[in-house]
């Protein structure tokens, strides 16, 4: 048995310790907001926060997440909710599939740097592919979130 803490809730799951966290979240715990995109850690669709750090959950064995705090797109975090509001306001998503991973990456960025430059945004978001090409709006939505926070 492995105990996972996801979005503040404990889940006892009976899986092989080497099962990637992604599949434990999706197929065992049943939270499907975290997406499979590549399985080799190059597209960012599966990003979650593990003790506040962004990780590609397809590359992390579930055993490595034990005892840590996992936040997924369904979770609660100040910056995540603010970013979701900006994503909505700017109509960012097209197909929407990569957006949970994009939002998690952006949340981790704002958790670390409150006013990122374009360069810092590029660096934080470089691991996330959007095949629809919504990057420009993602960047604008991050900037908007920062601006709104500054205005309080």
């Amino acid at each position: 048995m492995i105990t996972l803490q996801i979005n503040g809730k404990k889940h006892q799951i009976d899986v092989a310790p080497e099962m990637p966290l992604l599949w434990a979240i999706r197929d065992i715990v049943g939270l499907t907001g975290t997406k499979y995109g590549c399985g080799i850690g190059v597209c960012g669709s599966c990003k979650v926060l593990l003790d506040n750090s962004p990780v590609q959950s397809c590359m992390i064995p579930v055993s490595a997440a034990e005892g840590k705090n996992v936040i997924t797109i369904e979770g609660v975090s100040e910056n995540l909710q603010l970013l979701q509001a900006s994503w909505t306001a700017l109509n960012v998503p097209q197909c929407g599939f990569c957006q949970p991973g994009q939002l998690i990456a952006a949340t981790a960025l704002l958790d670390k740097i409150s006013e990122p430059t374009d360069e810092e945004i590029n660096e934080a978001m470089i691991g996330n592919i959007c095949r629809c090409g919504t990057y420009q709006r993602i960047k604008s939505a991050i900037h908007r979130t920062v601006e709104l926070k500054k205005q309080g």
Binding site: T32, G33, K35, I73, E74, W87, N91, P93, G96, P100
Partner: peptide, 23 residues
């Protein structure tokens, strides 16, 4: 006019059900 997508909230909160999410 400009109209926001009817599904945008589901996309950003992870509740949108893609084929891969059907259970």
């Amino acid at each position: 006019k400009k109209l926001r997508g009817v599904d945008v909230e589901e996309y950003v909160n992870g509740s949108a059900i893609f084929g891969l999410d059907k259970r």
